[in-house]
Design a protein around this nucleic acid. Sequence first.
RNA 1: UCCUGAGUAGCUCAGCGGUAGAGCGGGUGGCUGUUAACCACUAGGUCGUAGGUUCGAACCCUACCUCAGGAGCCA
Length: 453
Amino acid sequence: MLETLSQILASESPRASITVRGWVRTKRDSKSCSFLELTDGSCFKGLQGVVDAGLPCAELLPRILTGTSVEVVGALIDSPAPGQKWEVQVHDLKILGEADASYPLQKKGHTPEFLRTIAHLRPRTNLFGSVFRVRSKMAFAVHRFFQERGFFHVHTPIITSSDCEGAGEMFRVTTQKPNVPTKPEEDFFGRPTYLTVSGQLQGEAFACALGNIYTFGPTFRAENSNTARHAAEFWMIEPEMAFYDLFADMTLAEENVRYLVQAMMSECPDELEFFNKFVDKALISRLQQTLDKPFERISYSEAVELLLKSGRSFEHPVVWGEGLQTEHERFLAEEHVQGPVTIYNYPKAIKPFYMRQNDDERTVAAMDLLVPGIGEIIGGSQREERLDRLTTAMNAQGLDEETYRWYVDLRRYGSVPHAGYGMGFERLLMFVTGVSNIRDVVAFARTPGHAPY
RNA sequence: UCCUGAGUAGCUCAGCGGUAGAGCGGGUGGCUGUUAACCACUAGGUCGUAGGUUCGAACCCUACCUCAGGAGCCA
């Protein structure tokens, strides 16, 4: 395997000969030499190459503009100037691919809005390079968290026929031609099918067999929502645990968030420092606080009381039985608790059929984990394991029994208490990077009216 | 989908009724172990699109398009 910059920079002593392949970030010319700032994406840091004016390869320098890809051979030496530990004294230089003056990235700052329009080039910037290195590290940490705890990874289907939760518009999957009237039973799958909005229902089937499972994959919502927190395609982590009740569920969710924050801090220090400096100056202190302080838990009813007693005038009235609005959640997480907070036991009427009914007959065992700046990062519940209660709830919400027959079977045969949650992976990334727009933590974001790649 | 704001050079922006501007980036020259280098010169624009008002519109009005921020829905 070829050596990456990340490996080269980890050197403990000078080396007579190294080879660096990467892109030129900037070039600075001096009379006796030129300085090339090289990056290869393997880590946040770059390496400065020094090309003496007398070298034969120095003739290439006029053709090297920002963005040019090069192969550099030279000696890794202690840098005599402040600003970097190492530099490479160039012996030979090869241009792999030129980049002319139309290359849109400059060394000066670009707005994220502009960079979104060149999503194929933006991972070459400090900001987006950092975001996507972190995204990879976090994805692996998600698997590690569950695997270390004996959870099994289940690959639930992307194409589904159950319009789970009745929560939101779905993307239709079909092979039928437009403008040709055909029946769903004549379609590819013999029935209407959609891109999944959640793997939860299938996840429950596996939890009721393997015990503790999780899914981690793409999910799709055809909602016309235009916000910094919504995308039409996003990744979700959905653990499902047999024999867990709501409180065990909440505990796992909190540990999960804390584990990932810890991973961010210990595995991505350079990126973290960059985000803290240029994206969100309160990032490190907020993450540290997340680790230091236990997460608070407030029941929905208590939360309503708190909001009513806060003396705040909210744009949306606070009424028991209504969902908490964004401004309410922000108040709870950012002002009242000033940290992550779990709200639990929501009114039955505003939650889907599968959540377990509490003894009070008016709430269900649901929970949302709210974090400052983002809002809901996790939503979960204990599932209704009692056959009669489940079918009653299904009927009340007008669901087709035939479609959910297999799901009801889980209660018919050896039903067990179980619980789970869904964590929005992009929202987690926003939380640990401080990046405020979901479009900037997705490689090629899909939002309403926007799928150019 | 609703509300608000913005679209001027490749990028970031100023100009807000009277000849289209700056910084960065590009080119040329100079200087310098430089590090968002520096200095001088230079090229670069149907002022989002289409109408309208006016002697005259980047600027005022209308519609549309695009983007952003906020809201709803949620992860």
